[in-house]
Design a binder for these strands. Sequence first.
DNA 1: CATATAAGTCAACGTCACTGACATAAATTG
DNA 2: CAATTTATGTCAGTGACGTTGACTTATATG
Lengths: 167, 167
Amino acid sequence: MSDINPTVRTQPKLHANPLFLREEELRQGIEMLFHAYRDFTAEPDAMLAHYGFGRAHHRVIYFVGRYPGTTVSALLEILKITKQSLSRVLSQLLERGLIEQKPGQQDRRQRLLHLTENGLDLERQLTANQRALLARAYREAGAEAVEGFRKVMLGIMSDEKDRSKFA
Amino acid sequence: MSDINPTVRTQPKLHANPLFLREEELRQGIEMLFHAYRDFTAEPDAMLAHYGFGRAHHRVIYFVGRYPGTTVSALLEILKITKQSLSRVLSQLLERGLIEQKPGQQDRRQRLLHLTENGLDLERQLTANQRALLARAYREAGAEAVEGFRKVMLGIMSDEKDRSKFA
DNA sequence: CATATAAGTCAACGTCACTGACATAAATTG
DNA sequence: CAATTTATGTCAGTGACGTTGACTTATATG
């Protein structure tokens, strides 16, 4: 251990003032989000590294798997990155045969995106991991806690459009 | 709009089977985490860009502000990055006068880290933003929901040590 | 004194994001 | 039909942020 008793040295001060309790409550929330997200992405990141992919590839594979036939512009709105950033990742996934494109019937400019068999396999591997993490957390916390978790997560989202997906 | 009615085209299928309901519940959780974290970091990222900093600088400023006098190795354990990655960010923050070091009294090998006045200012700016987001979410969701949120977040964390900080 | 620990450093590398400008094809509109 | 808008792709350059591996310095500890 780098530190014999880190909690003694590094624990933030406790205050009796209710204002400080609220400050403490919010800071704990900030930190819980950091820790949870860090751990939530750690395993998938490691799996992706074996394929020479990164987290951006994961996000594309996930959302194409979730919404088969989605378009490039729809992905851009979800991920909130630039076309150029998505382009690189997407063309790598096409090259490696994890995603395929079909021209849109109504609008032939669109490239409707789908996972291939290999893409589906990888998506399942990655999602299985995160699903297991979340399933354990849900199970331990209970149904009521899950409802609370959902409410807070929805509140954090800034875009009403995103929120409306979770009705 | 890129898509007149995207929900019709892209909404995942609904299933009566309880197994699919669970699958849907977990996928929604995965997506809520993605959306919430993306929005939670968007504003601070933009603020940091004005200073020529990035998210990594934010994390260091945050945790040094939270645990004044913390050590480099303690930071490494929290952030779970390599010494080299932290080193670059930390030396930039030292150069720019946002963080200062004091040698440890018991162990003079240690460099105890503190925010300077400027560092405190920036920390407050960044944190104020995330605190406001979270405060709104907490207020709208209610106290009971916040308790549920905390339970689920704790469940997602893989490290018991991290969990124990939130007692 | 020998070993372990805290911290810093050099070099090389890859992912992932950005800006800005431009190109192509197809749809839509006046 | 001609002009404009939209969906997508592309080129060039840049920077943030993470990695591995090897090495150094100072200090603490058995």
